[in-house]
Structure formats: C-alpha cells, structure tokens
Write a protein that binds this DNA or RNA. Sequence first.
DNA 1: AAATTCTCCTGAAGGC
DNA 2: TGCCTTCAGGAGAATT
Length: 269
Amino acid sequence: MPELPEVEVTRRGLARRLAGRAISGGVVREPRLRWPVEPGVRSLAGRTVRSIRRRGKYLLLDCGDGHLILHLGMSGSLRLQPAGTAANKHDHIDLLFGDTMLRLRDPRRFGAVLWTAQPPEAHRLLAHLGVEPLSRALDGARLHALARDRRVAIKPLLMDSRTIAGVGNIYANESLFRAGIRPTARASRLSRERCARLARAIKDTLRAAIRAGGSSLRDFVASDGNPGTFQQRYWVYERAGRPCRRCGEPIRRVVQGQRSSYFCPGCQR
DNA sequence: AAATTCTCCTGAAGGC
DNA sequence: TGCCTTCAGGAGAATT
C-alpha cells in the first residue's frame, strides 16, 4: 500500500523521465475512482509537465495553468510504458507523452486523479494536511507540541494526515518500534525526549524505505515496474507471533481505529 | 473540537 | 473444485 516512501519513489522515477515533456493526449478507461475523473483529463494535450512534486501522499504535476493531483489510494501504481502497450484489466488512466505513457493501475480504485487551476496547496484535499515528515519542520519540539493535548494514542495520531502528512500504517508501526514506544501510548503522555526520539525514528524509517525502493506487499511497483524491498526489513509490521528481531519476544498485534498495530512488548514501552 | 465509526473496492485467504 | 464469507487499508465523510 503506497505510503510516503512509495509515493516519493514514484515521484523520483516520473520526474527523471517526464519533467519538461509535453502531454500529447489522455485516455480515461474507467473514471470511477475515489472521485469521478473529469473528462477534461483527456484534453490536457499541448501542456508541458514542468515539475512533479509531492505533498504527503499526493503527487502534483505542474502543468503551467493548473496541476494534476494524483493519489494512489491503497492499491495504485504509476508506470511509464511505451505508448500503445496493451492495457491490463485495472489500467484505468493513461497520460500520453509521445512515445511514452504514464499509466495508472489501481485494482481497488481508492486512488484519485483530479485537475485544479488553483495553487494546489489551496485545494481542499491538501489545505488541511499536517507537517511534512521529512522536512526540518518536524522535530522533537514540533511533535511534542502536536501531541501534548491529544488524548488519542500516538499511533492513530501519527496516521492522521492532518497532523503529519504521509505516514500510513506500515511506517507508523515501524517508526514506533524504532523509537521504543508502544502504539497504544497516549500521545499527551509522551515526554519531550521521547517525542524527539520518535521524530528521528520517523525520518530514519522513511528515508531507509525510500532507499530500498519502498515496500511491495501486494500491488506497489515503481514507475519502471520494479518492486521495492523494504518489506524484507520490517521489525514488526505483519509479524504477529513471530520473534522480535531484536529481543526474541513474540510480536503482538492489537487493533486501533480498525487498523492493525504491531509491537514488541519487550522493546516498546 | 476531538474522537470514533463508516464508506468506497477488489483480491486473497479460509471454511466447508 | 467451488462457493461463500471475511478481511485489509487511505482518508474523507458522517456521527457521536
């Protein structure tokens, strides 16, 4: 499931090959994604993709007079393929660049493709996103300030995109392991020191995942079609009952907010 | 206001 | 073998 590292790996692949290139057409095979894909996506021809940025898990293609906002939902992937490559069952959208095309595959259709003429930060989907986790703005002091009067557990707080943008279930679990903090700990009870440790753990985890090409559990592949390998290095995610890689105690699974949380009762307090 | 629950969807896995 | 049920999950929307 694409979280920040997978989106960033995708962004880098697309930026390398698409920045500065002209759009020659668009195909919408299936408009029923998270929100209906506007027919206008077919008529972007003539515009040039100036740059490709990321905000949380959103990709922003700057087309000069507007932005294409892309989200991979939980099963989406974007690939660069030779134009004319036969479409798979779940290949819903193509954006053509002459001999190359950008193709969105998304079996569960939780993804999004939207056009906006506003500054993208002002779009309703981006306007309320929290701090960018790999930015300087996220440090121990900031995290402590965000957590101090919140009654929720730290894990669902990390996954709340209005607080921190882009950290999903996998990386919230892995970051909490690295920080030695239980997912069930009340956010407001975390000391400044533990928040500093957690902020560092989040950055370390996300950076390591990006370097590994992201995690490929079911659907994710980078824009060149290659899967990531970070899933081989998980400390806790989907390891319930198996021994902790650090201390040997069995990893435990609990459910918080209808999401699985995994932790080592020996290493995390 | 914050916290919690519901919702979209499909493929995989498990039960019988 | 095959049908049926259950589950996972991003994050906005609805509800408490």
